[in-house]
Write a protein that binds this DNA or RNA. Structure first.
Length: 695
RNA sequence: GGGCGGGUAGCUCAGUGGCAGAGCAUCACGUUUACACCGUGAAGGUCGUGGGUUCAAAUCCCACCCCGCCCACCA
């Protein structure tokens, strides 16, 4: 690539970008020279394709990678992808549905084969798309969260936790999707506003009279074990300590006090149903109430009285009819309320008790809190520390098991003769005998890990479990806001627990990319923008420019396509500025004296100011402001003024011209890597531009 | 319900105590030998509303209105 390329008046990114990327690839590896600057990538889901969130996040990191490299650091980051449990399983199930099949038709083994096929076909797509963004990733070390070594790490972590008493198995109410047939974490739940009925039901008191309870779910009343009121509720306080009778089956219900009751809802009296409500379960724990379940995993009534086997909606109607016969319905009101539905399939969820594996969070949350308080990790912008601390301070134990099929199986073995009450936690099939049946007939559980349990260990796998074992911890990770708790917090306590060190020093919570109207982008609503289409239209450098130009470290970004067009024009401006440079410079002999014209002095001063400003702003993650300053410098100070002084007679110094043009190229490179590399070749250079020193 | 952020030119946004800014869009002029994906210039704003502090407020304080995001979820 020589100077002849400048015969063209306009820059065509499509002719060069891919070639330049391929030229760089070998140089993206760690060089082993200089102080490492390590970036931790957020592994995209194998279901994913590039969206503007990924684009922003990774372009920020790549810009910093190149900046740091030019500061003399050995910048390093590795690519990887996440198996993403439920998300992937549901995508494959959707494919099956087109063939008229469900996963149960295939059976577990064949279904998992299908998911692996899917992974082989689509798993790497988003990584290929990362190449299109020009990311300086070391492609010789791609990791996947179901790689053999990775799986071993996750098992080892589980065993460690287990040996130290952090893991337990318990029967607990969990959010359960009757369609997906699995428990879900809080984060996999959506709420849908729905019009429903609020039933006011009379519960007789044992010593005469009655109280009225408001509920939207009468079918769960058969699992009631108490009634509760708020301690500040003076109106109802006289009821405390009395006994109520559960209609239809006449179970005795103590009336207790608990602060979780909202005195303003309904009559201010809550029926406590620990098996089918998470709040009620908490109340139940505090008051040592029993756990009675009346709904099963199919959302059908279990074996209680005459309602057994009915689905929950039919049962609701029958129970209401019966209460009406007994004259125990005071009134029925319309109410708007939020129904919990499965994030993936939108089925209404049931809270039901299920045997699940839990991780004790109290100590671990403390580790994560202290790590940030002691500044072992810095969270930027600082305003995100509050939600981080709030979440950790109010944390519940983490349900880490899922009953889906796609994922990593727990290293847990159940006795085939005695059932799942007898189990062994072990890496390999246990040889010991069951304490009950005295036989060794162990079967590995089909339960899999919550995908976030696996992701929480990502830094070990990608940084430590490289052969060199020397990249842990990272310097920087960037994250979307909504996974601050799900991912970032969990990586922090996992790192502190297993490695005694936080997995990274700085977390940058980047802005959310919103639509022009300020709404969240959403594929299902059809208001997303596809970055690949933008690349096809404008090229990678222009996209990078456009998105970084709009970016602020503190504020969300309302996406606007115009700055990308502006970027395309800017690239052309740069192209032509260097065309002019190469045409002009050949006509001028290098001066022997180091005399500077006033234009020379002015542009050098301006370059220095710009550089200092850009340094400061990049360190503060204010890439938008940095780029705006560079834009102003290059276009308006360099092109509009300084270059003009080279037309006609000039007293300028050609050495300064060369110096300024080379320095500008370096300044632009982290933001606009491809074009600047191309022009760098025209200066007779054969190395990557990011090997140049920034200052 | 709790938390966080935003409201500045038609649009997207800079600007945190000292004469209101940029890009795009608009208008006028200019085919000046790097670039019409250009240049020169113009027009355009009661800085959400009301009050307060100050010599001075877009900027600091208080109240309110509107918009958005995150978290929790009311039985």
């Amino acid at each position: 690539m020589k100077k002849e390329i400048f015969e063209k008046k306009a820059y065509d990114p499509f002719e060069f970008e891919e070639k330049i990327y391929n030229f760089w690839i070998p140089y993206f590896k760690p060089r082993g020279k200089g102080k490492p600057f390590i970036i931790l990538i957020a592994p995209p889901n194998i279901t994913g394709s590039l969206h503007l969130g990924h684009t922003l996040q990774n372009v920020i990191l790549d810009t910093i990678w190149r900046y740091k490299k030019m500061q003399g650091y050995d910048s390093i980051w590795f690519p990887g992808i996440d198996h993403a449990g439920i998300a992937t399983q549901n995508v494959v199930e959707k494919e099956l549905r087109k063939e008229g099949l469900t996963r149960f038709d295939l059976g577990r083994e064949k279904f998992i084969d299908r998911v692996w096929q899917w992974k082989e076909k689509y798993g790497g797509i988003i990584l290929e798309q990362f190449k299109k963004l020009g990311l300086a990733l070391d492609w010789s070390r791609v990791k996947f969260t179901l790689d053999k070594e990775y799986v071993a790490w996750v098992e080892k972590a589980f065993l460690d936790y287990y040996k130290k008493g952090y893991i337990y198995r318990d029967l607990r109410p969990v959010n359960f999707c009757p369609r997906c047939q699995t428990s879900l974490s809080d984060l996999e739940i959506e709420y849908k506003e729905t019009e429903g009925e609020l039933y006011y039901i009379k519960y007789p008191l044992k010593l005469g009279g009655f109280v009225i309870i408001a509920t939207t779910r009468p079918e769960t009343m058969l699992a009631d074990v108490a009634l509760a009121i708020n301690p500040k509720d003076e109106k109802n306080f006289h009821l405390v300590g009395k006994i109520a009778l559960l209609p239809i089956i006449n179970r005795e219900l103590p009336i207790i006090v608990d602060q979780r009751v909202d005195p303003k809802f309904g009559t201010g009296i809550l029926k406590v149903t620990p098996a089918h409500s998470l709040v009620d379960y908490e109340i139940g724990l505090r008051h040592q109430l029993p756990l009675i379940s009346v709904i099963d995993t199919q959302a059908k009534m279990t074996d209680v009285s005459e309602f057994s086997g009915l689905d929950y909606l039919t049962a609701r109607q029958k129970i209401v009819d019966r209460l009406k016969e007994l004259n125990l319905i005071e009134k029925i009101e319309k109410i708007k309320h939020n129904l919990p539905v499965c994030e993936r399939c939108k089925t209404e969820l049931q809270v039901i008790p299920s045997k699940e594996w839990f991780l004790k969070m109290k100590d671990l949350a403390q580790l994560a809190i202290r790590a940030v308080k002691n500044k072992e990790v810095e969270i930027y912008p600082a305003k995100f520390k509050k939600p981080y601390f709030d979440w950790l301070r109010n944390i519940r134990d983490w349900c880490i098991s899922r009953k889906i099929w796609w994922g990593q199986q727990l290293p847990v073995w159940y006795c085939q003769n005695c059932g799942d009450e007898k189990y062994v936690v072990s890496f390999k099939k246990p040889k010991i005998k069951c304490s009950q049946c005295k036989k060794s007939n162990w079967q590995r559980t089909e339960e899999v890990f919550d995908t976030w349990f696996s992701s929480a260990l990502w830094p070990f796998a990608i940084l430590y479990y490289q052969k060199e074992k020397k990249w842990y911890p990272a310097d920087l990770v960037a994250s979307a806001r909504e996974i601050l708790q799900l991912w970032i917090a969990r990586m922090i306590f996992s790192g502190k627990f297993f490695m005694k060190k936080t997995p990274f020093k700085t977390v940058f919570i980047h802005p959310t990319v919103l639509t022009k109207e300020g709404k969240r982008m959403s594929k299902s609503l059809g208001i997303g923008v596809d970055p690949l289409e933008l690349i096809e239209k404008y090229g990678t450098d222009a996209l990078r420019f456009g998105i970084l130009f709009q970016m602020s470290a503190h504020q969300d970004l309302r996406f606007d396509e115009r700055p990308i067009d502006q970027g395309k024009k800017f690239l052309n401006k740069i192209w032509n500025a260097y065309r002019f440079y190469f045409l002009t410079i050949s006509k001028h002999k290098v001066l022997k004296e180091n005399s500077l014209s006033s234009a020379d002095k002015k542009i050098l001063a301006s370059l220095k100011i710009t550089k200092n400003f850009v340094n400061r702003k990049i360190e503060d993650f204010e890439l938008g402001l940095a780029l705006k300053r560079i834009y102003k410098f290059f276009w308006h100070e360099l092109c509009d003024i300084y270059l003009e002084t080279w037309k006609g007679e000039t007293k300028n110094n050609p050495q300064i011209f060369r110096q300024v043009m080379l320095e500008s190229l370096k300044l632009l490179h982290p933001f606009i890597p491809h074009l600047t590399q191309l022009i760098y070749f025209s200066f007779g250079q054969k190395k990557p531009l990011f090997f140049e020193k920034w200052q």
